[in-house]
Protein backbone atom coordinates (compact mmCIF):
# COMPACT_ATOMS: atom_id res chain seq x y z
CA UNK A 1 0.00 0.00 0.00
CA UNK A 2 1.60 3.27 -1.06
CA UNK A 3 1.92 5.80 1.68
CA UNK A 4 0.28 9.08 0.84
CA UNK A 5 0.97 11.49 3.65
CA UNK A 6 1.23 15.21 3.10
CA UNK A 7 2.38 17.86 5.58
CA UNK A 8 -0.46 20.32 4.93
CA UNK A 9 -3.33 18.00 4.20
CA UNK A 10 -6.86 19.35 4.09
CA UNK A 11 -8.59 16.00 3.79
CA UNK A 12 -7.11 12.85 5.25
CA UNK A 13 -8.53 9.43 4.50
CA UNK A 14 -7.35 6.36 6.37
CA UNK A 15 -8.22 2.76 5.49
CA UNK A 16 -11.49 3.72 3.81
CA UNK A 17 -13.70 0.90 2.55
CA UNK A 18 -17.00 1.53 0.77
CA UNK A 19 -19.63 -1.16 0.36
CA UNK A 20 -22.73 -1.16 -1.80
CA UNK A 21 -24.74 -3.87 -0.09
CA UNK A 22 -22.32 -6.79 0.01
CA UNK A 23 -20.16 -5.54 -2.81
CA UNK A 24 -16.95 -3.81 -1.84
CA UNK A 25 -16.50 -0.82 -4.14
CA UNK A 26 -13.50 0.77 -2.40
CA UNK A 27 -10.83 -1.28 -0.70
CA UNK A 28 -8.60 0.22 1.97
CA UNK A 29 -7.81 3.63 0.51
CA UNK A 30 -5.60 6.04 2.46
CA UNK A 31 -4.78 9.41 0.96
CA UNK A 32 -3.93 12.97 2.01
CA UNK A 33 -5.41 15.75 -0.10
CA UNK A 34 -3.53 19.03 -0.01
CA UNK A 35 -4.76 22.56 0.32
CA UNK A 36 -4.23 24.91 -2.59
CA UNK A 37 -3.51 22.16 -5.07
CA UNK A 38 -5.54 20.23 -7.60
CA UNK A 39 -5.67 16.50 -6.98
CA UNK A 40 -6.81 14.30 -9.85
CA UNK A 41 -8.32 10.83 -9.51
CA UNK A 42 -7.80 8.77 -12.65
CA UNK A 43 -8.53 5.19 -13.57
CA UNK A 44 -10.66 3.03 -15.85
CA UNK A 45 -14.46 3.02 -15.66
CA UNK A 46 -15.83 1.35 -12.57
CA UNK A 47 -12.55 1.64 -10.66
CA UNK A 48 -14.22 3.47 -7.79
CA UNK A 49 -12.80 6.95 -8.28
CA UNK A 50 -16.23 8.63 -8.34
CA UNK A 51 -17.43 6.50 -5.43
CA UNK A 52 -14.44 7.55 -3.36
CA UNK A 53 -14.96 11.20 -4.32
CA UNK A 54 -18.53 10.99 -3.05
CA UNK A 55 -17.40 9.72 0.34
CA UNK A 56 -15.54 13.00 0.83
CA UNK A 57 -18.75 15.03 1.24
CA UNK A 58 -20.98 12.12 2.28
CA UNK A 59 -22.98 12.16 -0.93
CA UNK A 60 -22.98 8.37 -0.60
CA UNK A 61 -25.26 8.76 2.40
CA UNK A 62 -28.11 9.35 -0.02
CA UNK A 63 -27.62 5.97 -1.73
CA UNK A 64 -29.52 3.13 -0.08
CA UNK A 65 -27.22 0.31 0.99
CA UNK A 66 -23.99 2.32 0.77
CA UNK A 67 -21.73 1.96 3.79
CA UNK A 68 -18.39 3.60 4.55
CA UNK A 69 -15.82 2.34 7.05
CA UNK A 70 -12.44 3.79 7.98
CA UNK A 71 -11.74 7.39 8.75
CA UNK A 72 -11.96 10.62 6.74
CA UNK A 73 -10.77 13.81 8.42
CA UNK A 74 -11.46 17.37 7.26
CA UNK A 75 -8.97 19.62 9.06
CA UNK A 76 -8.64 16.88 11.66
CA UNK A 77 -12.41 16.48 12.22
CA UNK A 78 -13.93 13.09 11.45
CA UNK A 79 -16.61 13.75 8.84
CA UNK A 80 -18.39 10.46 9.61
CA UNK A 81 -18.51 11.30 13.29
CA UNK A 82 -21.91 11.35 14.98
CA UNK A 83 -21.48 15.08 15.70
CA UNK A 84 -20.72 15.98 12.09
CA UNK A 85 -23.79 17.33 10.33
CA UNK A 86 -23.75 16.11 6.72
CA UNK A 87 -25.73 19.18 5.65
CA UNK A 88 -23.10 21.59 6.98
CA UNK A 89 -20.34 19.35 5.66
CA UNK A 90 -21.69 19.58 2.10
CA UNK A 91 -21.56 23.35 2.29
CA UNK A 92 -17.89 23.15 3.33
CA UNK A 93 -17.10 20.50 0.73
CA UNK A 94 -18.86 21.66 -2.41
CA UNK A 95 -19.47 19.52 -5.46
CA UNK A 96 -19.70 19.95 -9.22
CA UNK A 97 -21.29 17.09 -11.11
CA UNK A 98 -20.68 15.31 -14.37
CA UNK A 99 -23.69 16.70 -16.15
CA UNK A 100 -24.35 20.42 -15.59
CA UNK A 101 -27.39 20.50 -13.30
CA UNK A 102 -28.51 24.09 -12.74
CA UNK A 103 -31.81 24.54 -10.93
CA UNK A 104 -34.70 25.44 -13.25
CA UNK A 105 -34.59 28.97 -11.85
CA UNK A 106 -32.92 32.23 -12.83
CA UNK A 107 -29.15 32.58 -13.02
CA UNK A 108 -29.25 34.81 -9.94
CA UNK A 109 -31.37 32.34 -7.96
CA UNK A 110 -29.07 29.46 -8.87
CA UNK A 111 -26.16 31.20 -7.19
CA UNK A 112 -28.15 32.83 -4.37
CA UNK A 113 -29.86 29.62 -3.25
CA UNK A 114 -26.97 28.22 -1.19
CA UNK A 115 -26.09 31.48 0.58
CA UNK A 116 -29.77 32.02 1.31
CA UNK A 117 -30.41 28.68 3.03
CA UNK A 118 -27.22 29.11 5.04
CA UNK A 119 -28.11 32.68 5.99
CA UNK A 120 -24.89 34.12 4.57
CA UNK A 121 -26.47 37.42 3.50
CA UNK A 122 -28.73 39.67 5.58
CA UNK A 123 -29.99 42.00 2.88
CA UNK A 124 -30.34 42.22 -0.88
CA UNK A 125 -27.18 44.29 -1.56
CA UNK A 126 -25.13 41.77 0.40
CA UNK A 127 -26.64 38.91 -1.59
CA UNK A 128 -26.01 40.80 -4.85
CA UNK A 129 -22.36 41.10 -3.86
CA UNK A 130 -22.07 37.38 -3.10
CA UNK A 131 -23.69 36.49 -6.43
CA UNK A 132 -21.42 38.84 -8.36
CA UNK A 133 -18.31 37.55 -6.63
CA UNK A 134 -19.22 33.91 -7.20
CA UNK A 135 -20.06 34.48 -10.87
CA UNK A 136 -16.85 36.46 -11.31
CA UNK A 137 -14.78 33.67 -9.75
CA UNK A 138 -16.48 31.20 -12.05
CA UNK A 139 -15.57 33.39 -15.02
CA UNK A 140 -19.19 33.88 -15.98
CA UNK A 141 -20.01 37.40 -14.73
CA UNK A 142 -19.24 39.27 -17.93
CA UNK A 143 -21.34 36.90 -20.00
CA UNK A 144 -24.44 36.98 -17.78
CA UNK A 145 -24.40 40.26 -15.85
CA UNK A 146 -27.08 41.79 -18.08
CA UNK A 147 -29.40 38.81 -17.90
CA UNK A 148 -29.31 37.53 -14.34
CA UNK A 149 -33.05 36.92 -14.39
CA UNK A 150 -32.84 34.57 -17.39
CA UNK A 151 -33.23 30.86 -16.74
CA UNK A 152 -30.00 29.10 -15.80
CA UNK A 153 -31.06 26.21 -18.00
CA UNK A 154 -31.10 28.46 -21.07
CA UNK A 155 -27.30 28.87 -20.99
CA UNK A 156 -24.96 26.76 -23.12
CA UNK A 157 -23.56 23.55 -21.62
CA UNK A 158 -20.21 25.11 -20.74
CA UNK A 159 -21.85 28.17 -19.23
CA UNK A 160 -24.19 25.94 -17.24
CA UNK A 161 -21.23 24.08 -15.80
CA UNK A 162 -19.55 27.37 -14.84
CA UNK A 163 -22.86 28.41 -13.26
CA UNK A 164 -22.73 25.21 -11.22
CA UNK A 165 -19.18 26.08 -10.17
CA UNK A 166 -20.37 29.58 -9.18
CA UNK A 167 -23.18 27.97 -7.20
CA UNK A 168 -20.68 25.81 -5.32
CA UNK A 169 -18.27 28.72 -4.76
CA UNK A 170 -21.06 31.01 -3.45
CA UNK A 171 -21.32 29.16 -0.11
CA UNK A 172 -17.58 29.69 0.58
CA UNK A 173 -16.53 26.05 0.58
CA UNK A 174 -13.08 24.89 1.64
CA UNK A 175 -12.93 21.96 -0.75
CA UNK A 176 -14.48 21.60 -4.21
CA UNK A 177 -15.10 18.12 -5.57
CA UNK A 178 -15.51 17.82 -9.32
CA UNK A 179 -16.90 14.62 -10.77
CA UNK A 180 -15.82 14.53 -14.43
CA UNK A 181 -16.93 18.15 -14.87
CA UNK A 182 -16.02 18.32 -18.55
CA UNK A 183 -17.24 14.99 -19.86
CA UNK A 184 -20.42 16.55 -21.28
CA UNK A 185 -18.64 19.59 -22.77
CA UNK A 186 -16.97 20.41 -26.08
CA UNK A 187 -13.20 21.09 -26.22
CA UNK A 188 -13.53 24.89 -26.04
CA UNK A 189 -15.84 24.80 -23.02
CA UNK A 190 -13.51 22.21 -21.49
CA UNK A 191 -10.51 24.51 -21.91
CA UNK A 192 -12.48 27.29 -20.26
CA UNK A 193 -13.26 25.10 -17.21
CA UNK A 194 -9.64 23.99 -17.00
CA UNK A 195 -8.46 27.61 -16.91
CA UNK A 196 -11.02 28.23 -14.21
CA UNK A 197 -9.74 25.32 -12.12
CA UNK A 198 -6.25 26.81 -12.41
CA UNK A 199 -7.61 30.18 -11.15
CA UNK A 200 -9.54 28.61 -8.28
CA UNK A 201 -6.89 26.29 -6.95
CA UNK A 202 -5.15 28.85 -4.69
CA UNK A 203 -8.28 29.38 -2.65
CA UNK A 204 -9.62 25.84 -2.35
CA UNK A 205 -8.52 22.27 -2.17
CA UNK A 206 -9.80 20.89 -5.48
CA UNK A 207 -10.32 17.23 -6.24
CA UNK A 208 -11.20 16.30 -9.80
CA UNK A 209 -12.22 12.92 -11.13
CA UNK A 210 -11.45 12.64 -14.81
CA UNK A 211 -11.53 10.10 -17.57
CA UNK A 212 -9.03 12.06 -19.57
CA UNK A 213 -5.40 11.50 -18.66
CA UNK A 214 -4.44 14.57 -20.64
CA UNK A 215 -6.79 16.61 -18.51
CA UNK A 216 -5.32 15.21 -15.30
CA UNK A 217 -1.85 16.05 -16.59
CA UNK A 218 -2.92 19.59 -17.54
CA UNK A 219 -4.83 20.66 -14.45
CA UNK A 220 -3.53 18.71 -11.47
CA UNK A 221 -0.44 18.84 -9.33
CA UNK A 222 -1.07 15.48 -7.69
CA UNK A 223 -2.64 12.40 -9.19
CA UNK A 224 -4.06 9.22 -7.69
CA UNK A 225 -4.54 6.18 -9.88
CA UNK A 226 -7.42 3.88 -8.95
CA UNK A 227 -7.96 0.37 -10.24
CA UNK A 228 -10.58 -2.21 -9.18
CA UNK A 229 -11.49 -0.29 -6.03
CA UNK A 230 -7.94 0.16 -4.81
CA UNK A 231 -5.69 3.18 -5.00
CA UNK A 232 -2.73 1.82 -6.86
CA UNK A 233 -0.46 4.84 -6.84
CA UNK A 234 -0.51 8.43 -5.64
CA UNK A 235 2.11 11.07 -6.23
CA UNK A 236 3.08 14.25 -8.02
CA UNK A 237 1.34 14.41 -11.36
CA UNK A 238 4.67 14.76 -13.20
CA UNK A 239 6.04 11.68 -11.55
CA UNK A 240 2.89 9.60 -12.18
CA UNK A 241 2.89 10.43 -15.87
CA UNK A 242 6.61 10.29 -16.57
CA UNK A 243 7.90 7.77 -14.11
CA UNK A 244 5.17 5.65 -12.53
CA UNK A 245 6.36 3.24 -9.86
CA UNK A 246 3.67 0.65 -10.38
CA UNK A 247 3.38 -1.54 -13.44
CA UNK A 248 -0.44 -1.14 -13.54
CA UNK A 249 -0.19 2.66 -13.54
CA UNK A 250 2.27 2.51 -16.39
CA UNK A 251 0.04 0.18 -18.39
CA UNK A 252 -2.94 2.48 -17.90
CA UNK A 253 -1.25 5.74 -18.79
CA UNK A 254 0.37 4.23 -21.85
CA UNK A 255 -3.08 3.16 -22.99
CA UNK A 256 -2.75 -0.59 -22.56
CA UNK A 257 -6.19 -0.73 -20.90
CA UNK A 258 -8.89 1.62 -19.80
Amino acid sequence: MPEAKLPDSKLTARNVDVFYGDKKAIDDVSIDIGNGVVTAFIGPSGCGKSTFLRTLNRMNDTIAGARVTGQILLDGEDIYDRDMDPVALRARVGMVFQKPNPFPKSIYENVAYGPRIHGLAQAKPEMDAIVEKALTRAGLWNEVKDRLTDAGTALSGGQQQRLCIARAVAVSPEVILMDEPCSALDPIATARIEELIEDLKDRYAIVIVTHSMQQAARVSQRTAFFHLGKMVEYGDTDQIFTNPREERTKDYITGRYG
Binding site: N57, L89, G94, N101, P104, Y113, G114, R167, A170
Partner: peptide, 27 residues
Protein backbone atom coordinates in the same frame (compact mmCIF):
# COMPACT_ATOMS: atom_id res chain seq x y z
CA UNK B 1 -38.29 15.20 -11.10
CA UNK B 2 -34.73 14.53 -12.33
CA UNK B 3 -32.45 13.17 -9.56
CA UNK B 4 -29.79 15.67 -10.68
CA UNK B 5 -31.88 18.45 -9.10
CA UNK B 6 -31.78 16.65 -5.76
CA UNK B 7 -28.04 16.04 -5.88
CA UNK B 8 -27.49 19.67 -6.91
CA UNK B 9 -29.40 20.94 -3.89
CA UNK B 10 -27.79 18.46 -1.51
CA UNK B 11 -24.43 19.48 -2.96
CA UNK B 12 -24.79 23.09 -1.81
CA UNK B 13 -25.79 21.91 1.65
CA UNK B 14 -29.58 21.84 1.54
CA UNK B 15 -31.16 19.51 4.09
CA UNK B 16 -33.39 16.72 2.77
CA UNK B 17 -36.54 18.62 3.79
CA UNK B 18 -35.25 21.77 2.06
CA UNK B 19 -34.51 19.71 -1.05
CA UNK B 20 -38.12 18.55 -1.08
CA UNK B 21 -39.85 21.84 -0.34
CA UNK B 22 -37.56 24.17 -2.32
CA UNK B 23 -36.97 22.03 -5.37
CA UNK B 24 -38.79 18.74 -5.75
CA UNK B 25 -42.27 19.82 -4.71
CA UNK B 26 -42.47 22.98 -6.86
CA UNK B 27 -41.36 20.93 -9.88
Amino acid sequence: VPPSIRTAALGVGASPVQVVFHHVLPL
